[in-house]
Design a protein around this nucleic acid. Structure first.
Lengths: 316, 316
DNA sequence: GGTCTAATATTGCTTTACGTTATGAAGCTG
DNA sequence: CAGCTTCATAACGTAAAGCAATATTAGACC
């Protein structure tokens, strides 16, 4: 015998309110409706739920016990409703975000942290990868959003790309690096210092090659490679190595990690860092929230970067 | 928005079984039925519960969360079903039993204890009273059973009376009482000892009067009155007082309380101790269980009493 | 003890949801 | 890509829930 949870909830409400009429009112149903529902329930369980012939309907022992269970079921049902509401608004859920390692570690993770202080019930699963791999994962639904550097026009046709920040790389070094004392830096000045290289298959590695070529440097000595941002920062800070990093990364880790950027202009990659999402399928509601948040935060970041560079220019 | 608990339970089962078809089977429903139910649920909450286009139907994040709640609801529902079953079989519930004080304390409470070791989920509310009061309580549903001494033919017409034990009173004293050493006891032997009297409105008090009259004793000195059985036993044990008690009470407390019965025959009251229940209304199922148990136990008790009296007779 | 009032039950009818079987569409596997 | 399995859809009968209107009855109040 399976009894209807809804009936138990109604029973609970009647018992709580102390009468059928009041219970019906609280439930937003008509009095005859709940009356018949209770009669049906009593028929099914084959026992009285209310003392017979009592006018302010009083539950029997069994009725009271079942009402307690009904109340617990009602609470769970409410919890489910709230969960759905929260999910629909994007305040609850799981987001699977991936992107290029340096950007994720150096920039995006900071914003994820800020986002989660506002939306603590949105669980974020971060992973790393480059465009080809990530767009595949977006298509088969293994990923909700990729954050990649991309020329807007070269985004896959079945995806949406929202730019966040123009690509701009710099040569990074530790804060007290000897080269920082020079007003202008020549190719010869750079010559003695070893380089930290990102993974050879990364866009950043190609950026490094292109950037050095743009200032006339054809070959370079790699002293360290393969590390994620944390390692790169550690090595940079404890040596006179140089590397190419997105300026946003350097900007955000300047104070905490003791990084700085050489006063030398290198070629900008013709790309934007942006958010890539798959057009097919229904994105989780929290994705909209997160995307909006990121867009705002990156706008602020760009403004801070602009402001900083103007101040620096005036001083320099 | 109120969602159907039943739907959440179905969702939980699908997720647990890893597929819609298996879930439907486990629920004893057809596959199309649960399929449509899930479609309906998805419509209502306005979000996907299952990853679209996956053949062994895989729940989304939200689907999984709701399924967890559904599983808890299902557990509660099961608990309710079991409670109903248990109640119908009489293994659960509340019984309100009342009776004359001495019998309840001296005899019935022992059997209640035994009953509850078998049926620990039957809660028993004991109270005390005499016939008039108790039959009123039976009628208005404040009591499930009264255990009273009664002549079977004088039971109220709207009630059932099941005799448990023929009324048989004895003169009780402490085990080492001086009178116990006498082979035959005369009225003069009894003369010096004070009496413990039950409450004046109790049947037992009338029994006491009648019993003493039956052996020719018209007046008696009352040294203690008004106590319940525990007090009576204490006073009896620490003095040479006498009192009239049902033999069953003396029999059961002999060893533990150091009571004994004088070897003198007094008038039997023309009554039986028995169970009185109201015919109107539906008794709780556990009442049948309890009544059956009491009947058996009292039969055993009577057999033990018979056996004992035969042994005593042979010895004496 | 009769009468009034408010609480509950009953009746009649409509709508919704659930159940079934039969059948179509679409992943997954080899 | 054939074949199997899994899920979705269609069509239809039944059970139940909804409502309004109305009958019944327990408690309360003279």
């Amino acid at each position: 015998m399976k009894l209807d949870s809804e009936h138990l909830e109604i029973l609970a409400m009647i018992v709580e309110k102390g009468g059928l009429t009041e219970g019906a009112e609280a439930l937003g149903k008509s009095q005859p409706s709940v009356s018949r529902t209770m009669a049906l329930l009593e028929d099914r369980i084959g026992a009285a739920l209310f003392e017979p012939g009592k006018r302010p309907l009083r539950p029997t022992e069994l009725g009271e016990s079942l009402a307690r269970i009904g109340a617990r079921i009602h609470a769970l049902n409410l919890e489910a409703s709230r969960m759905v509401q929260s999910f629909r608004k994007g305040h609850t859920g799981r987001l699977r975000i991936a992107g290029t390692p340096i950007f994720m570690d150096g920039v995006v993770s900071n914003f994820i942290a800020d986002f989660q202080t506002r939306q603590p019930d949105v669980q974020i699963e971060q992973s790393y990868g480059y465009l080809d791999q990530l767009s595949g994962q977006l298509r088969n639904g293994a990923l909700d959003m990729a954050i990649v550097p991309l020329h807007p026009s070269s985004a896959p046709t079945d995806m949406s790309f929202v730019p966040l920040l123009p690509g701009r790389n710099v040569i990074a070094c530790r804060a007290g690096h000897p080269l920082m004392r020079k007003a202008t830096i020549t190719l010869a000045d750079i010559e003695p210092y070893p380089w930290i290289a990102p993974p050879p298959d990364s866009p950043l590695y190609r950026d490094l090659q292109r950037a050095l070529k743009s200032i006339g440097k054809e070959d370079f000595r790699v002293s360290f490679s393969g590390g994620t941002l944390a390692s790169i920062i550690s090595v940079l800070a404890r040596s006179d190595s140089l590397t190419v990093l997105p300026y946003s990364v350097v900007f955000l880790s300047r104070k905490t990690a003791g990084l700085d950027a050489l006063r030398i202009r290198i070629a900008h990659p013709d790309r934007h860092l942006g958010m890539l999402t798959f057009d097919g399928g229904t994105p989780p509601p929290s994705l909209r929230l997160f995307a909006g948040f990121l867009k705002d935060e990156f706008q602020l970041l760009e403004a801070r970067i602009q402001h900083e560079s103007q101040v620096t220019k005036r001083r320099g």
